[in-house]
Design a protein around this nucleic acid. Structure first.
Lengths: 158, 158
DNA sequence: GTATTTGCAAAAGCTTTGCTGCAAC
DNA sequence: GTTGCAGCAAAGCTTTTGCAAATAC
C-alpha cells in the first residue's frame, strides 16, 4: 500500500498565471515549483514536489519548497490535504478548484478518488448558515474500501 | 489563539463499557485513559490525555497513551481529528458518535463548533453510491471565522 | 544599497519502536 | 511458564527556523 496511484485531477486554473497576475514576482525555482503543482498528475507531498520540481530547475532546497507552499496557501490558491493519513503525516497539495470536491482514500490499495456534487455545496451553505460561521477552507475526506478492493475482500471471505 | 476552548461534546456511548464488553481485559492505566477520553469536555490531544489520565492513575507513560489510542482506533471506537491543524500537527481524539458530525474551527479564537445534520448523512450515502466506495471513516472539517470573530473583524474594518 | 530569496544545518514537534523487565493468569 | 503490558530512551518523520551568503532591482 501507500504508493499513491496516478489519478486524474479536476481541471485546474492557470495557477502560475494567477500568481503572477497579482504582481508577485517569482524566481525560477518558485516558478518551477508552481508549474509542478499545476501539472501534477498525482497529489504531491513536499518531498515529491521537491523531486519533480528539481527536474525542471535543479538544486531546489527543501526550505524553498515549504516557503513556496506557504505563499500559495496564504494566497488561497492551493489546498492542503491529509488524505486520511494513508501514508503517514505528510501533507498533500492541490490547486484549489472552483467547486469544492472531496477525497476518498482506499485503505487497501491507496487509490484516491475525487468527487464533487451539488449536495456538498448545499451542505456548505447549510453549515455556514446554521452556525453563523464564515467558511474559508473546507475539507471532506473519507477512508474505506474502493469498489475493487471491497469486491476482492468479499470474494476472499466466501 | 490556539488554546482550544471548552465545548460541549455530542453524547457519547459508554466507551469503557463497550471495550470491556468485547472481552478485552484492561489494566488500570488503560482504564484511566479510556475514562478520560469518555469524560473529556474538550477535544484531547495525546499530551492532554496523558496529563488528565495521570490525575486518575499516576505514572502513565507516553507510549502507553499512544498504544491505547491505537487499540481504540482499531476497534473503531474513537475518531482521530486534525481540527484544521489549528495548533500544529497534533491529533485530537473523540468517542465515535452514532451520527457523524463535523467540526468548524475558528482561525481567530480557536473555538471548535460541532454540528450534525441529516444533509451530511445523505451526502455520505450519495458519495458511497456514486463511487461504489465503502466508507469506513469520514471526516469533514472547516476552518474560518466564527460569528463573533467575523463580527469583530467587520467592526474593525469600518 | 535595500529588500528578498536561498542554502544549510539544526531544531522542533508529534509519534513510533526496540528492548528489558514486570505483572497477570 | 507464557503471554502481554509498561517504562524508558532513542529514533523517525515531516516541517520550521536562524542566519549568513547570494541575488535581484
Amino acid at each position: 500500500m501507500s504508493q499513491l496511484e496516478v489519478l486524474p485531477l479536476f481541471p485546474r486554473h492557470e495557477l502560475l498565471h494567477q500568481v503572477e497576475a497579482r504582481g508577485i514576482r517569482l524566481t525560477a525555482q518558485r516558478r518551477a515549483l508552481i508549474e509542478t503543482i499545476q501539472e501534477a498528475t498525482t497529489h504531491l507531498d513536499a518531498e515529491s514536489l521537491l523531486k519533480q520540481a528539481c527536474e525542471r530547475e535543479p538544486g531546489i532546497n527543501r526550505a524553498t519548497v515549504y516557503r513556496t507552499i506557504e505563499l500559495l496557501k496564504k494566497l488561497g490558491m492551493i489546498d492542503e490535504l491529509d488524505l486520511m493519513h494513508l501514508d503517514g503525516e505528510k501533507h498533500y497539495y492541490e490547486v484549489r478548484t472552483k467547486q469544492d470536491h472531496l477525497h476518498l482514500a482506499c485503505f487497501e490499495c491507496g487509490k484516491i478518488i475525487e468527487f464533487a456534487t451539488p449536495a456538498f455545496e448545499r451542505l456548505k451553505q447549510e453549515i455556514a448558515a446554521a452556525n453563523q460561521f464564515e467558511i474559508q477552507v473546507i475539507r471532506l475526506e473519507a477512508g474505506g474500501l474502493c469498489g475493487a478492493c471491497a469486491a476482492k475482500q468479499k470474494k476472499h471471505l466466501q
